[in-house]
Simulated assay, not measured.
Amino acid sequence: MAQQVRGVVARAKGEAVSVETITVPDPGPGEAVVAVQACGVCHTDLHYREGGINDEFPFLLGHEAAGVVESVGEGVTDVAPGDFVVLNWRAVCGVCRACRRGKPWYCFATHNAAQKMTLDSGEALSPALGIGAFAEKTLVHSGQCTKVNPAAKPEVAGLLGCGVMAGLGAAINTGGVGRGDSIAVIGCGGVGAAAIAGANLAGATTIIAVDIDDKKLQWAKEFGATHTVNSRENDAVEAIQQLTDGNGADVVVDAVGRPETFRQAFYARDLAGTAVLVGVPTPEMTIELPLIDVFGRGGATKSSWYGDCLPSRDFPMLVDLHLQGRLPLERFVSETISLDKVEEAFHRMERGEVLRSVVVL
């Protein structure tokens, strides 16, 4: 039987969000209803509200979530009612050309629920990243539910669902940073801080945090940065080179996603090093580089989708590392809030006052 619950909805571009009654249908084949316990406030949700993703309003916001499976539809065998899960927005299909090549983290046909959640009026909602977890309950494809150790607190486990995984994976999975390597991370908000935490976890010995905000640079130190550079006061490329014997870093992660920061990442890497773009640019942004520099510097420039993660592999492992005290996920949680405080949390995020506000239900 369909259920009515409270959820945070963006009705129109640029308008303040509102808490409204939404209808969650019973799960159909391959679907699951999840009772959401916590959901992080991610910049992507703000992009949805501002019309920066698409114009398929109204949106049911929220996607960085953990909770308990309440019910499943026909044919679901990978999760069961009562399972504690982190939600993901790239449920792999297993049959597309990327999956068949053994690279499911690039899956080109990821799954979402077939049914729609709706407003009281019957108007269909577009769930953010196919999840819509600023709600007491949400309907997703069962493949979007990744079972993890229930000993983890929901407000920290859920952060793996987007921002932390994106940053950590950009450093480890995409950039391939490892023991003894050097890495620079440009932009030290939630995603950048996660890249620093990932580099520290992987054994990098020189971890350079770059930002224009001293508060974020202080946060970066707490996650393992060995050096900090305020790029409002110093040339970022020169500073990174000076800290790496004049060579540049083995890996440079651009967690901002602007032409000027990607240019910094490109020139701040060592010869044959790797520049990784994980910050999300807007559609009108372009970049021009001398082709001889692209050729002459060698190495690689990569984009990182969701930290090139495989949720079924990475989420349980990272939760276990957190429970062992080796991955300080709790440090990302700046505050916990209720559903009706999401709009205020957006403003605090825009002002750079928090790493993550987390809605707890």
Rank of each mutant, 00 (worst) to 15 (best):
260 E>L: 13
281 P>V: 13
234 N>E: 15
260 E>F: 07
268 A>C: 13
191 V>D: 02
273 G>L: 11
176 G>M: 12
181 D>V: 01
251 V>S: 05
243 L>S: 08
258 R>N: 09
238 E>G: 11
192 G>C: 10
232 R>T: 01
249 A>W: 03
242 Q>T: 12
206 T>L: 01
173 N>T: 05
264 Q>S: 14
230 N>D: 07
224 G>Y: 04
182 S>A: 13
214 D>T: 11
187 G>M: 06
264 Q>N: 12
172 I>C: 05
172 I>M: 14
231 S>R: 14
244 T>N: 11
229 V>C: 07
272 A>Y: 13
204 A>Q: 03
199 A>E: 03
177 V>S: 01
233 E>A: 15
215 K>M: 11
220 A>Y: 06
230 N>Q: 10
270 D>W: 02
222 E>Q: 13
172 I>R: 12
188 C>H: 02
182 S>C: 02
198 G>V: 03
249 A>G: 07
270 D>N: 15
233 E>H: 12
236 A>H: 02
220 A>Q: 09
209 A>T: 06
199 A>K: 02
187 G>T: 03
226 T>M: 11
184 A>C: 12
204 A>W: 00
180 G>V: 07
241 Q>S: 09
255 A>C: 09
267 Y>F: 15
244 T>H: 10
220 A>P: 02
201 L>A: 12
225 A>V: 04
187 G>Y: 01
267 Y>V: 08
260 E>V: 13
212 I>E: 06
246 G>A: 14
231 S>D: 05
242 Q>W: 00
227 H>S: 08
262 F>N: 06
198 G>R: 07
238 E>M: 07
234 N>Y: 04
258 R>D: 04
248 G>C: 13
196 I>S: 06
226 T>K: 11
272 A>L: 15
274 T>I: 15
255 A>E: 08
255 A>Q: 11
238 E>I: 04
197 A>D: 02
240 I>E: 01
281 P>K: 14
210 V>C: 10
170 A>F: 00
223 F>L: 09
177 V>R: 06
193 A>H: 07
247 N>P: 00
242 Q>Y: 00
228 T>V: 15
274 T>G: 01
225 A>L: 12
273 G>Y: 04
264 Q>C: 09
184 A>Y: 04
250 D>C: 01
221 K>F: 00
211 D>N: 07
204 A>L: 05
264 Q>G: 04
224 G>A: 11
